[in-house]
Write a protein that binds this DNA or RNA. Sequence first.
DNA 1: TACTGTAAGCTAACACCAGTAATTAAGAGG
DNA 2: CCTCTTAATTACTGGTGTTAGCTTACAGTA
Lengths: 207, 207
Amino acid sequence: MSPRPKGRTIKSDLRERIIEAAWEQISREGAPALSLRAIARDLDIAAPSIYNYFVDRDALVTALILEAYESLALHQKMANDALPVQDLHARLVSIGNAYRDWAVTYPQRYLLIFGTPIPGYVAPLETIAPIAARSLHALISVVESFHLAGRLKVANLDDQTIAVLIWTRVHGLVLVEITNNLPPISPSGSQLFEIEFRLIVDQFFVD
Amino acid sequence: MSPRPKGRTIKSDLRERIIEAAWEQISREGAPALSLRAIARDLDIAAPSIYNYFVDRDALVTALILEAYESLALHQKMANDALPVQDLHARLVSIGNAYRDWAVTYPQRYLLIFGTPIPGYVAPLETIAPIAARSLHALISVVESFHLAGRLKVANLDDQTIAVLIWTRVHGLVLVEITNNLPPISPSGSQLFEIEFRLIVDQFFVD
DNA sequence: TACTGTAAGCTAACACCAGTAATTAAGAGG
DNA sequence: CCTCTTAATTACTGGTGTTAGCTTACAGTA
């Protein structure tokens, strides 16, 4: 219709600055400590102004979760695409390493997505589910490729289930590492990851 | 030295009632929503009275975490002791099932222990670590028994590492289940657990 | 019995939080 | 120039953890 009024397009880009400040705060203090008023202080604005851009705190959290999934999915895709299609083993390892790297680089984002839900927050599944699925897509497609190549060791499980199991194994390991719940006697997170990933490959795929 | 004054021992047992109310609240609303004032309302006392029994909110949380670990460790021990010492496979399965059962029965307690830390809370490791270790004890001892019986399939990993890996697998699965992060297409939590546990046994132990 | 000290409750208050209502300043379009 | 909309503001409500200071009841002692 009518061209976007200039005032709007030029508009202060405050929405993005709010999200940026929120990330800044999350990486410092963790997701559950996210405070609209602290964001407002950081940005030198009045707290209620945030409500011009997000209907409430949950809406902001949802936006952050979407961004985090987006980032994770992108890293997965890059790790996957970085290697030749036919080298399934290399692609699998690349995906796995990229997954852990992302998690330990952005532990608070990882926890925001997969950790204990924030007190009052309930994720709008219909918004998040599609993009959440995308972060598993690279893994599923590699498993399917192994299957098509006849290189699956387990015959009685379908590809999706295998992918989910691989994911929960990696997820559990990564989560334990970034929440500092590794037993003190155990090997380091990265060592353990390497061992576990070898075991995963060994159990499911002909190398 | 001098005998505990009667007034103290008879004392209102308020401390236990606070903890009880806290559990009640946690199972309803989840750990991060725990509120001292809400507890006080439930018990018809003034909020600051709680500070007679816990130096601050974190101290209460620590007490709750200890109780939760205690309960988990006890369940593990019972599951372990319920079966003959020599039937390693049965004991392992029993431990595994008990672990998941406990987690799905008390999801909020499980999340309290292993989930995203509560906003300001930092766990006093020296208090928690010993009892936390106990909840892995049953598993470690079974793995050691398998080792002594010469029934370990993997030769290059020590018992502790194997136990930790088994735990992180089960942990990841259980956590994904109770935080509702299972991909919609995947099998149910209990089915997945059964599959995964079979894979675990198959990979590490001679049956 | 009367006195004293302490433990454990209380109210009041502070500083923070999310969110709402009402108001103002500024700019766009007629 | 006037009006309408948008995005900012301040003021406020009701929630949170926590501290300070007061009060009450009771144990131990003289």
